[in-house]
Structures are given as structure tokens and as C-alpha cells.
């Protein structure tokens, strides 16, 4: 191979790895900052310290309560979004028609419509219904925002479901509810689990709308982080960012290992 040809192959590849580095490496900066021995945002100077991680564990600093709040809201919103999403996806799959497809577009639209527009809408509505800064107000908004991905996850599972299973069950005399709960549902459980997980992550991360429909009574973790970035930047912020980074890395590594194992099992190795 000529030098020129080698360069034509190697340069784009080098550029791609450089870009992947640009994506990943800046995230790592939070780790040394979290370990600083100073009480302001800086790299460690005379040694490392775990004081900022310890500060996270103090209930009065507000990090633990906000984690509990986000977890509770996430579980409720995920349960609601998954129930609604599964029910809709299964119903629309079985009763194809113009009505389900129109509603499907509406249910998916939060993926495209800028969240700030929805924020304006919900601040107005919740102010009138006295739901600003309340748990039900946040859970309902998160449910609506989590529905698109829950719906997509279940729909992906349903696309692989053989319609003849349903025909067989119906021709053997199963009542409609029996078909849905005993034939369709057990076959799409992986999709339901994916929907629940995605819905939880959406709620756990949501900030744009939450920021304007909450104040003091409901402080989710993203809201707590937001306040800390905009008002008083302290290294505890780097510590919580480190914790979130490590959890994400572990979750992705576990998923990758699980996938490799199931691939090997499929190949019979």
C-alpha cells in the first residue's frame, strides 16, 4: 500500500478517535476536582481528601434529600408512564386505524417540541390548579415527558410479536382481556422493562420544566445541582458529579457484559 493510500485510511480514523476523546475525557475532570483538599473548586494541591464525598452524606446539605426526592418521583412517573405507554402501544398495535396513529404522533411530540414551550404551558396550568411546587405536579409532568420513550420501547418489542399468536388465542375462544394479559403481555416483557428503565432515567434527569414548576417544597437532584452551579459552586458538586459518572459507567459496563454473554449463549459457545 502506498503512503498516500495509508494516510487516506489512517487520518479519518485518527480524527474519529480524537473526537471520541473530546467526548469522554472532559467528563473525567470532575474526579480530581472532587478529591481536592481545598474548599473551593480546584485541583488537589497538597494531597487528596474525601471530605467533599463525606459532605454529600450529611442530610442537612440537601444532597441526600434531593436524591430521595428524585428517586421517589422517578419511580412514580416511570410506573405511570410505563402503564400508560404499554396499554396504548398494545391497544394501537391490535386496533390499527387513524385514531391510534394520530394519538401516537401527539404522544411522541414531546421528543421534538422544545421543552421551554411545554414549560410556559405547564407553569400557566399548574398555577391555576395550585399544583406548582407539589409532588403530583412534578410526577404528572415527568409522566408526560417519559411517555414517548416508554412508547417507543414497547412498540419495538411489539414489532417482533407474531400476530398469529393473537389469532390463535382468539380462535381458541380467549376473551379480549385474556388475549392482552396472557398472550401479548408475557411476550413483550423485555420491552416493558426497557420502557420502565428509560422512563425512570428521563424523570431522574429532567431539569428544564422542573426548574420552573418547583421552588422550595420539591427539590429534585437536577434542581439541587442547578442551584449549586448557578449560585454557590462548591466541590461537593464535583463529588456528586463523580458519583453519577461512576454509576453511569458501571451500568453501561454491566449492560455490555450482559449483551456479550447472551450473544455467546445464542451462538452456543
Amino acid at each position: 500500500m502506498s503512503l498516500r493510500r495509508q494516510l487516506e485510511v489512517a487520518l479519518p480514523r485518527l480524527l474519529a478517535w480524537g473526537l471520541l476523546g473530546f467526548l469522554f475525557l472532559p467528563l473525567l475532570v470532575v474526579i480530581p476536582v472532587a478529591l481536592t483538599d481545598r474548599d473551593y473548586l480546584s485541583l488537589p494541591q497538597h494531597g487528596i481528601s474525601l471530605a467533599h464525598f463525606a459532605a454529600l452524606l450529611d442530610w442537612d446539605n440537601g444532597w441526600l434529600p434531593s436524591i430521595a426526592t428524585s428517586a421517589a418521583i422517578g419511580v412514580l412517573a416511570s410506573a405511570l408512564a410505563t402503564t400508560l405507554g404499554v396499554s396504548f402501544a398494545v391497544g394501537a398495535w391490535a386496533a390499527a386505524g387513524w385514531w391510534p396513529s394520530c394519538l401516537r404522533v401527539l404522544l411522541l411530540s414531546p421528543l421534538i417540541v422544545p421543552p421551554m414551550i411545554y414549560t410556559v404551558a405547564m407553569v400557566k396550568l399548574w398555577a391555576r390548579l395550585a399544583l406548582l411546587d407539589t409532588y403530583p405536579g412534578v410526577v404528572l409532568v415527568h409522566t408526560v415527558l417519559a411517555l414517548p420513550l416508554a412508547l417507543l420501547a414497547v412498540s419495538a418489542s411489539l414489532a417482533n410479536l407474531d400476530p398469529r399468536l393473537v389469532q390463535a388465542a382468539r380462535s381458541l375462544g380467549a376473551r379480549p382481556l385474556t388475549v392482552f394479559s396472557r398472550v401479548i403481555l408475557p411476550n413483550i416483557i423485555p420491552g416493558v422493562a426497557a420502557a420502565a428503565l428509560l422512563a425512570f432515567v428521563i424523570s431522574w434527569d429532567e431539569i428544564t420544566v422542573t426548574l420552573f414548576i418547583t421552588e422550595r417544597a420539591v427539590v429534585t437532584l437536577p434542581r439541587r445541582i442547578w442551584t449549586s452551579i448557578t449560585e454557590a459552586v462548591d466541590p461537593a458538586l464535583a463529588a456528586i458529579a463523580t458519583v453519577l459518572l461512576i454509576v453511569t459507567i458501571i451500568a453501561l459496563a454491566a449492560r455490555s457484559m450482559y449483551q456479550t454473554r447472551s450473544e455467546r449463549r445464542l451462538l452456543g459457545r
Partner: peptide, 11 residues
């Protein structure tokens, strides 16, 4: 009918 009913709550 049951299928359409299932789409109602999310709608």
C-alpha cells in the same frame, strides 16, 4: 373495542 379502550388512558 377492548383494544381501543386500552389506548384511552394515555390519549
Amino acid at each position: 373495542r377492548t383494544a381501543l379502550l386500552l389506548t384511552a388512558p394515555a390519549s
